[in-house]
């Protein structure tokens, strides 16, 4: 019986000692963890300093995507509106974030460094359709706060 009490006291001691240790969990969403800058989260489409889209709609990301999550529709860039730095641009660019496995191959394949995976990982929505990120959404990458 004594050995039983000893064991309980021993266990309690470990528990009480742990109260002083730094915590492994954090209070999400009040507190958020820092990720490595190389973390692969939601995609973004980059623009250059003049606001031109870097994406030329070549479709290599679409070709390399193992999950068929990307759809690119290219078109001739409108001459009057300076959206693209060259004569071709992506008129439509969609990433299905449910299909995406965040492997980062699109980023690797991109010849113009236009598609990048940001550290943003808070991907939740009420409908599946909301999980398809369109071009507008990708051009304005979300920032974690």
């Amino acid at each position: 019986m004594l050995s039983g009490f000893k064991a309980i006291a021993n266990g309690l001691k470990t528990t009480l000692l742990m109260l002083k240790e730094p915590r492994d969990t954090i209070q999400y969403p009040e507190k958020r963890r820092e990720y490595s800058p190389r973390f692969r989260g939601k995609h973004m489409l980059a623009q250059d300093e003049d606001g031109h889209e870097l994406c030329v709609g070549c479709g290599l990301c679409e070709a390399v995507c193992p999950a068929h999550a990307i759809r690119v529709v290219a078109a001739g860039a409108p001459g009057s509106r300076p959206v693209s730095w060259t004569e071709r641009y992506a008129v439509d660019y969609e990433v299905d974030l449910i299909r995406c496995i965040f492997c980062g191959m699109c980023e690797e394949a991109c010849p113009t460094n236009a598609v990048r995976l940001t550290p943003f990982n808070e991907l939740a929505a009420y409908s599946r359709l909301d999980m398809v990120a369109d071009k507008e959404e990708l051009l304005a990458p979300p920032v974690r706060n």
Binding site: G59, A63, A75, G76, R88
Partner: peptide, 9 residues
């Protein structure tokens, strides 16, 4: 066909 498609799509 200019800018319409790629051989893989």
């Amino acid at each position: 066909y200019h800018f319409k498609a790629r051989p893989w799509n």
